[in-house]
Design a binder for these strands. Structure first.
Lengths: 134, 134
DNA sequence: CGTCTTACTGATAACGATTGTCAAAACGGT
DNA sequence: ACCGTTTTGACAATCGTTATCAGTAAGACG
């Protein structure tokens, strides 16, 4: 049976109060700063559980996993600058539908998709024109 | 000055011959299997360079970085089975168009996109029903 | 063609993020 | 309050990746 502990609740609360994506370690540090004695492993476990239960979204950015409280209505993807690393959230409704259809057509179940666009953001595009790197 | 070594060329070749995304370690293993004595660190360095130079795209899936040769002859995407690793090539024309539009709307240039669908193939879906892992 | 400079290489150590381990503590039904 | 089970927290282990460093070789120059 799943138990209800203050640790899990603390992670859930901290995550929903946190603005945007946050790493497990950062969240742990934040909790400790707030006086909590919660352990790092517990934070990882809680975040994994929350993600499994659909209460949190996760993505990996530069080798570390970032988590965000899930607002179930906003599944979106990212537009990422190859040079400066800036990311923008983008809507991909047509793609969601397409992905579902393709998976179904091929008999695939439990389909998840990775949809990200890499490019040069406006600022870096200008830099690239004046000082081409390649 | 940038030098031209057989190691770098080997990585470039292996990457472009590889179908879809591949991890640095897998690429290294593949090269070693092919008789090369190339070192793991060199593969990482070459892949990083190729990515910086825009000759390769990278994404991180499940904690590890995957690489793919940029500007492939036949641009297509993949439907990948999470359990058995089978991949099917899929057409994504509507997505190509959508990606171009999104990038343009946000002022991004030189846009490349990563579109892959992960799921369970028909066979593994059946297995999963009779012996659920989660 | 030989030499010299210096970027590149490869083995390994170091590193950071994450996961496994396991005894102790906490939860919740009784 | 008691008991069985789950969860916790500290720490070790693991995994992918990066830094280190002495040795090697690419490419410029004579």
């Amino acid at each position: 049976m799943k138990r209800n502990t203050w640790q899990r609740e603390a992670v859930r609360t901290a995550l929903s109060e946190s603005d945007g994506f946050i790493s497990a370690q950062a969240l742990h540090g934040q909790l400790r700063d707030g006086g909590s004695t919660i352990g790092l492993a517990t934070v990882y476990r809680a975040l994994t559980d929350l993600t499994d239960e659909g209460e949190a979204d996760s993505l990996t950015q530069d080798g570390e996993a970032l988590y965000r409280a899930c607002t179930p209505d906003t599944h979106h993807h990212h537009l990422i600058c190859r040079r400066c690393g800036a990311t923008e959230e983008i809507e991909a409704d047509p793609v969601e539908e397409w992905a579902r259809r393709i998976a179904a057509e091929h008999g695939y179940t439990r389909a998840e998709h990775v949809v990200d666009i890499f490019g040069l953001c406006p600022a870096c595009s200008r830099l690239s024109e004046s000082a081409p790197s390649a």
